[in-house]
Amino acid sequence: SVQVRQKLVQVDPKEEEDFERELKALMQESLESRKLELRSRPTLNMIIPMNFLDGSKDPRFIEGESGEETMDEEGGSGGGQNKVRVKVLMKRGNKQQTKQMYIPRQCSLVQSTKQKEAAELEE
């Protein structure tokens, strides 16, 4: 295969600063607008459905069909040593479903889960 020449990426610091400012503004504006929206909507009905743990019993629950065949090349079938398989809980209409995905082992998201599991085991 071709030997690739390394590229010198030079980001203009002024551009970077400008971009960062706009990004922050957008974040801020997003947060503010949510707070306003919520104040005008006094009653909240936020139930995290916890029954997905034994989802098979829930008639509204479907196991994602996509999982296995959409693995990317380095994921292989087992996700490799550096990756952890997770299920992403999603809603399709009013149905819940999970799709599996691989996340790097060092990601804080899975680390906390692993730590917790380890802690639970110790208990």
Partner: peptide
Amino acid sequence: FLLGFISATTESVVVLLCREPC
């Protein structure tokens, strides 16, 4: 800009949740 993943207690399940208010 408000969304992020959070892991549920066990079973390696992750969920997309918004920062505000969820």
